[in-house]
């Protein structure tokens, strides 16, 4: 299961099916694919990413979104917004990127663990060229894993060749970030499925 694909098109879906993906959460879905959830293509769900600079902005945006049919991810740029997103039931995951990595301190981790709000990290962030940044991500990941907080790993693929084989993701997390195989596997199967199963998607 990939919870963050930028654009979904026919060719990408075909490749995703070959790789073993059953569900794709896409930011943009090509018009012809919307009602085409057959057994031959992966199930498609619309993803909405809310860039929250403050709490009031986040509340306003959340009010106008159908959270029952869409996968809501919050990309916070403010500590308060991050805390608020952690305990809001409409938010499905909180995105960690290179821009907001400093927000995810011990307190934020505890809040997210308490409300079992998954932390979403894209593979683009995990394989970034900046080694110092990767060190920071490593420490954050370790503390999340040690607290047994839910974790989601997605590809943020824009083209078909930017997808990652699921086995490679699990092994990559194991060898580069010391994430146990079980948790790595849960990050691409069990944790996102738990969210998707609550959605009203046909």
């Amino acid at each position: 299961m990939d919870t963050y694909v930028k654009t979904c098109n026919e060719h990408l879906l075909k490749i995703a099916r070959t790789m073993g993906y059953r569900v794709l959460v896409c930011e943009e879905i090509e018009g012809a694919l919307l009602g085409k959830n057959s057994s031959l293509t992966p199930m498609l769900i619309k993803k909405v990413i809310i860039e929250a600079k403050n709490v009031s902005e986040l509340r306003k945006t959340l009010a106008g979104i159908n959270h029952k049919q869409q996968f809501i991810t919050v990309h916070p740029f403010d500590k308060e917004a991050a805390r608020w997103a952690s305990h809001d039931g409409r938010v499905d995951s909180i995105l960690l990127t290179t821009e907001n990595i400093n927000l995810f301190d011990k307190k934020q981790q505890n809040v997210m663990k308490y409300y079992s709000k998954p932390l979403e990290i894209t593979l683009r962030t995990l394989i970034s060229d900046n080694l110092d940044l990767r060190g920071v991500i490593y420490r954050r990941m370790r503390s999340y894993v040690s607290r047994k907080a839910p974790l989601i790993v997605s590809s943020m693929a824009n083209k078909w060749y930017e997808l990652y084989p699921p086995l490679s993701i699990v092994k990559f997390l194991l060898t580069q970030y010391d994430v146990p195989e079980k948790i790595g596997l849960q990050a691409i199967t069990h944790v996102p499925w738990f969210i998707v199963s609550r959605k009203e998607v046909k």
Binding site: I15, M19, K159, Y161, E162, L167, S168, K171, T175
Partner: peptide, 23 residues
Amino acid sequence: TDHLLATLGLVKKINDKNCLLLP
């Protein structure tokens, strides 16, 4: 083996052609 399996997923271009290696 784990290192190789992870590496296969990280290969995105072969000889300037977009590629995916699927274990």
